[in-house]
């Protein structure tokens, strides 16, 4: 069984001290160990941004791609090798801005990947411009008079597109985040986690105290039913817009088959393990017969 040490590399993260990425980093490694995965079982696909460097700082199969593009890359990896656990890790600019279209289609496609979006409501690596989830009025270098747009509602978007696992965690509560990742890894189809996180450098208005004051767990009273889509949508619409931020598994159903379960060619096992030519050589003459 894997240990935390096996996920360690001798590279120090370049994140600012106090960055929420440290919490997510630890929660990911702990979740992999808790879910009993070895580093070689995981393919971690990331985009571009501070948090997308996650796979540079841990020992997994990492594929650090382009801004906004990790989701389609991850889907390609998944279709090619269903024996691997594919997890996408990227930021809010990446997932909801540049990659917004891919997000919609991943949600309705329901391919068996985990999609973890680190949402700090600001562009940090490019030094402090507003992001798709920045609240209206937020002043940054590209919104000197305050943001004019309403923020994206990631949970609502995912739900409206038919996502089968929708969760929210945050970088202060490692225990909950680890639990959400473990559950997402166990999900049959597309598992989406919006992870709200502090950016100590460029988002000074949403620091640790803000999280303590505004977040709550949907199942704190033990009476929340994550299989109730209407209730989930109601929770999703609480934030952004309202003052309280619901966290936990907002919606989950295991009744919807994953995309790859319907792909006939994959009935024979992972594509990468199949022979390049699956039929007897003489059968290939049929391709020519068809054109006679």
């Amino acid at each position: 069984m894997a240990t935390l040490q096996e996920y360690a590399v001798d590279i120090r993260p370049t994140w600012c001290s106090g960055c929420g990425d440290f919490g997510i980093w630890n929660a990911l490694k702990r979740a992999f160990v808790a879910a009993e995965y070895d580093p070689q079982d995981i393919v971690m696909v990331s985009g571009i941004g501070c948090g997308s460097k996650m796979n540079d700082y841990m020992r997994v199969n990492g594929l650090h791609t382009l801004h906004g593009r990790p989701v389609p890359v991850a889907q390609g990896v998944r279709l090619a090798n269903t024996a691997r656990k594919v997890i996408c890790v990227h930021g809010d600019g990446d997932g909801y801005g540049e990659g917004g279209n891919h997000f919609l289609h991943a949600a309705r496609r329901n391919m068996g990947i985990v999609d973890l979006v680190e949402n700090n409501h600001v562009y940090a690596l490019t030094r402090g411009q507003y992001s798709p989830t920045s609240y209206k009025g937020f002043k940054t270098s590209t919104s000197p008079f305050g943001v004019l747009e309403k923020p994206v509602n990631p949970l609502g978007l995912a739900l409206s597109q038919g996502a089968t696992f929708v969760a929210r965690g945050h970088s202060l509560d490692l225990e909950q985040l680890q639990h959400l990742i473990v559950e997402a890894l166990d999900h049959r189809g597309y598992a989406f986690i919006d992870v709200m996180q502090v950016c100590v450098t460029y988002n000074r208005e949403m620091l640790y105290d803000w999280y303590r004051e505004h977040t709550y767990k949907v199942d704190e009273n033990g009476d929340y039913d994550p299989s109730d889509w209407d209730a989930a949508m109601k929770k999703a619409m609480e934030f952004p817009g309202g003052d309280r931020v619901p966290t936990g598994i907002i919606y989950r159903t295991e009744d919807v088959p994953a995309y790859e379960e319907g792909e006939p060619t994959l009935e024979a096992g992972p594509l990468v393990d199949q022979p390049l030519r699956t039929r007897p050589w003489e059968d290939y003459q049929i391709l020519l017969d068809e054109q006679m």
Binding site: L63, V73, G76, N81, V272
Partner: peptide, 8 residues
């Protein structure tokens, strides 16, 4: 690219 990276 994802599929080719994965070896197919």
């Amino acid at each position: 690219i994802g599929a080719a990276y994965a070896g197919v």
